[in-house]
Write a protein that binds this DNA or RNA. Structure first.
Lengths: 158, 158
DNA sequence: GTTCTTGCAAACCCTTTGCACGTCT
DNA sequence: AGACGTGCAAAGGGTTTGCAAGAAC
């Protein structure tokens, strides 16, 4: 039903609606950023996106990349995650819906998992406070089960 | 039942157990940081803590503050949050248990709310992957209902 | 034509690091 | 005594900002 070009068109429409609603301008740069993101299927940082676009000859400045990522986050096309000790990472809201992250506090290992319950709680809580729910970012901190690779074992065995 | 000195003693014991387990040393600085945090009842950043301690004549360096906050986070005495665009914020795990944060993507306003369900999901998910659950940080992104103060209204009314 | 956006580079802020000195065991 | 931790200041990395040139309306 939904071909990949249709999905991109939907994102462009969503972005365009937002820009119009806010009286921001429809610039080529903003749509070039969106197009490039759509071609990715993973988390990425602002700088990774900046470098990849320029490596492809799709010239753009860091300032524009940062500014556009901010707009795309505000209109709910992107989700922004701030993992421990790392730069901000973004991903399309439509990519792998309702997944979250479990991370080891010792070695930083990250596991992605799905939970529809959390999205339900999110929508309910936001509505209770009169907010319009958009998205969420949940990080569970835990200790990794791997005694061999986890730095856990500075001096203990498990 | 639990006086405030008892609560502090429990935290000190928890910290001391962790340091012993890891063969880290029991330094005065580490316990001074813990004592100061215990006296707070709010979120704080590393730099706020550094400044407050030094303003009180409780001299300590930034490097030690950062290092100690990291240890306190790893042993589950503190939770570390990374809110949008801000420096890392910490709070005692025992402060207002099981609460999370709802934030407006437009104006940054933050609402704290309680949900025991999320802690239950956290524990279940961590166990499923064989991890030892510790804590979590959930941020719900939404749009603020206040049309007067939320910057929302660059050009719209609601 | 006016206003907004872009690009560039410098500035900025938070955090980490290197090294000498001090402290814990 | 030896190893680890602290303090200081400088470096580092990600992000934001100021300003001139360019694009959108």
């Amino acid at each position: 039903m939904s071909s990949s070009s249709t999905e991109l068109e939907q994102l462009q429409q969503q972005f365009s609606d937002y820009l119009k609603r806010k009286k921001y301008r429809n610039t080529q740069e903003r749509y070039r950023v969106l197009d490039h993101i759509h071609a990715l299927d993973r988390h990425f940082s602002a700088d990774e996106l900046y470098l990849e676009m320029n490596n492809r000859g799709d010239r753009i400045s860091r300032a524009t990349v940062y500014s556009t990522l901010d707009l795309l986050t505000k209109c709910n096309i992107l989700v922004k995650h701030r993992f421990q000790g790392e730069s901000a990472h973004y991903e399309l809201s439509t990519r792998m819906p309702n997944h979250d992250h479990l991370m080891c506090v010792e070695c930083g290992r990250i596991v992605e998992f799905r939970s529809d319950e959390i999205a339900a709680i999110r929508d309910r809580v936001a509505s209770e406070f009169g907010y319009i729910p958009m998205t969420h970012s949940l990080q569970i901190f835990a200790r990794c089960p791997d005694p061999l690779t986890c730095e856990h074992n500075r001096s203990e065995v498990a």
